[in-house]
Simulated scan of single mutants.
Amino acid sequence: MTTRRDLAGLIGVGAAAAGALTLASSGVKAQAAGQNTFDRIIANKKMRLGAVTSSAPWFVKDAATGKWGGHFYTIGSALAKDMDVELELVETTWGNAVLDLQSDKIDIMFGLNPTPKRAMAVDFSNPAYDSALVVIGKPGFEPKSWADMNKPEVKISVDLGSAHDQIATLLCPKAQITRFKTINEAMLALKTGRVDAQCIFWMGGVRAVKADPSLGKVIVPQPFFGSTSNAAVRREADKTWLFFVNTWIGYARGLGLVRSAVVESLEQVGVKPEDIPAGITL
């Protein structure tokens, strides 16, 4: 199994990337005002990555040691290593990440699904990997379709401002949708019987039910709703940063590094490839 340390070491700056970074470094004496994100990262030797605590397998922070994990931490670390810059983790939430990009608190946020609303505010990279939306239905509640949940008597929990929130609102406008600050709070509402289902992407749903089967069952409602997991960057006239991120993602996916990071993070929370619901692929 490829470890996080292995992943960081596997990714080396190729000749073309090294040449691009050399050229960028030589012209990095521009003033801070108006400087594009890519040049500023190279000049400051620091890349600010948005990170969400208690959000395994995507991100997780050990409360005792302060150490981060999760596959977007691993992927972000590899990106920073290839750029020969320091990785700085800036805590955010899925709902606040777009605002943090716009206000220049972070340089990049992995794990955002490109919705039209978000795309009006920030730029999205090429997909890091494919994803799919599911629900965790409480014991005895097993809807087969989104239409089965689009009823006034059905209660659904989501984390505020997330893709889960936006998609559930779109597909189930007649349902009672309760919005919480975090995924964990939305999950607690399910566990305590305040809602019938939680809308969530499959990785979080499978991981949660593996850890606590009393939550209910992971269901892939039909029609199948597929999405992608992308990185988001601040919108600016100079697209150098976006172009570099796209190039790097293609490189990392081609070498299997993104998939290895995802598989490792899932194994760390007890999810094996055979646990993946039918119809969903990495």
Rank of each mutant, 00 (worst) to 15 (best):
G279H: 01
Q35R: 15
C172T: 14
K61I: 10
P173N: 14
L87P: 08
L171A: 04
A128Q: 05
R48C: 06
G250Q: 09
Q102M: 15
R48Q: 11
V209N: 01
S260K: 15
I219W: 01
L99D: 09
A132K: 02
D165G: 05
L242K: 13
Q176K: 13
P152N: 09
S229C: 12
P221H: 05
L170F: 14
W68S: 02
A189G: 02
G216M: 03
H71C: 08
F180Y: 15
H164T: 05
R235N: 11
A132D: 12
K272E: 14
W94F: 08
A63V: 04
L282H: 03
D165K: 02
G34N: 03
V90K: 09
D148C: 14
K46D: 00
I177T: 09
G270Q: 12
A32S: 09
I200Q: 06
A30R: 15
V269L: 06
G205Y: 10
G270T: 12
L282P: 03
K239P: 13
G27D: 10
K155H: 07
L257R: 13
E91N: 12
F243H: 13
K117M: 08
A278R: 13
V209I: 08
K81R: 15
M1S: 14
P277A: 06
L23F: 11
V233P: 11
D196Y: 01
T182P: 13
M203F: 14
T2Q: 08
A64P: 06
A80R: 02
P57E: 05
T92P: 02
V269W: 09
A43I: 05
A43S: 13
L160C: 00
G66T: 04
V209F: 02
N44Y: 00
M203R: 15
D104H: 10
V195M: 04
L21T: 13
D148N: 15
D123S: 15
L89A: 07
A278W: 04
K155P: 03
A15R: 14
R259Q: 13
P223H: 12
S265R: 00
G250Y: 04
P57Q: 03
V269N: 08
A261F: 10
K210S: 03
L171E: 02
E142L: 14
G27V: 15
